[in-house]
Structures are given as C-alpha cells and as structure tokens.
Nucleic acid binder design. Sequence first.
DNA 1: ATGACTCGCAACGCGAGA
Length: 259
Amino acid sequence: MTTIATWNVNSVRARIENIKTWLEKASPDILLMQEIKCQDEQFPAHEFEAMGYHCLIKGQKSYHGVAILSKQEPTLIMNRLPGEDEDEQARYLEADVGGIRAACLYLPNGNPIATEKYPYKLRWMERLRKRMSDLLAEEIPAVFGGDYNVCPTDDDCYDPVGFSNDALCQPESRAAFRSMLNLGMTEAFRTVNKTPHTYSYWDYTGGAYQKDHGVRIDHFLMTPQAADMMEDCVIDREPRAQTKASDHTPVILTLKDPA
DNA sequence: ATGACTCGCAACGCGAGA
C-alpha cells in the first residue's frame, strides 16, 4: 500500500508545527506540498528528514513554491512545467518514487479574470494537459496531485452563483480540466466518493470553515496504470480545524501495490 | 459590505491568495 497526499500548506515555515503533527499521525509515503512560500534554502528540510522523509524542493521568494516529501528516495524528473520558457513561477515538480511517477502542481489561481492572470492560468492548463498526454503515452502509473484551482462542477462549490465570475468556476477552466479527463486521466476523489459539496478549501474570512462554505479544488488525476491501483481517496478535514491552519486541507490517495 | 483572514516582506501597509 502506498499513500500519497496533496496539501496546499500556505507557507511551510508558518505551518511547520501543523505539518509535522499531521505527518506523525497520517504518515503518508509521499506528500505533495504547494505554496511553500520560500526559497529552497529556507525550506525546513532538516525537520522533515528527522521524521524519515526525503525532500525535493522547487521554491521561490515569497510566493508559490512546491515540494515533494517521500519516505523512499525520489528521483527528480523535472522541476518546471515545459512549454513556456519565460515562466519563472515555481509551480511544478515531478519525481519518480519507487516506480510511481508523482507530479506536484500548483495551478495558477487566475483571478481576477479580466487580467493577464486568467489567460496565464489557461495557458498553464494547456501545458499541463500536454505533460499528461506525454506521460499517458508512456503507459506508466503516474499521479498528478495538487492545488488545481479548478472547481470541476457546481457540486464542488458552496455558492456557484457567487463564484460565477471566479476563475475557479469559469466554463473555460472547467473545460480545460475536463480535457485532461478526456485524455484518459481519472480523477481520484469523485471516482470513489459521489457526495456533493465535499470540500478541500475554506476561506479564512467570515467563519467559512464553520459554515462549510468551501470549494473542492485540490485533486489527484491518475493515468490508467495508476487508476488500476487505486484503493481509496479521502479528504482529511481535521487539519483545517486546527489552530493556525492552512486554508486548504490534505487529500489522501491510497494505491495498492503493483500485482 | 470597496468588507472579511493570513501570508511574506530591503515589511510597519501592501499585494496576493481563492
């Protein structure tokens, strides 16, 4: 059994105690971490290494940044998403961990939609679709986990009308997400859990978590070879209820070992 | 409700997040 988690931690340094507490309890084999908000040399790798994790880091100053923690030693495949050489934002990390390809992604939010941020998001999604297409052709078990910043359907949003102008819920964002599924990728959570209005993110403002005013934007997409191994996928709400929580909570994918 | 929280920062108010 292999457990892979994805979690947008909203600053690894501000969240270090929350993350360590959760790692001790959940003990995932792999953690795909987004929004570390620091440069590589500021990443508290020693703290995770002391808990038995290897660290791959793609950081940048202040914003964005992704990391992969794994119990098995990872092999770095790439630390940027191909297709736009001038894109300097640290949003993608891909590694091989024990024969499983694991991609950690932090897809651009895209708000406000009237700015350059929105077409950047859509271009980034097209680049991601291309990367998925390439890995599908390799016919290997590959898992793309991360903060997709896409709310796939109205059932994944507490207030679809209120979000009608939000980049997370735009028809183009949703179509780009579906185009990844149409390639042959399987979205893990919805495959095993049909309960609508099950969220992975709640805003800090207005007591959103207590009111369950959330959105589901953190996802795992799997190639067929990985989907065949899927045992379960759950959202662990507990970290979101803690003091000094991230606004996102972990999503955990469990894979059976290869037959 | 041009609102609300929380982060990082050559910071002490601002941009960004979603």
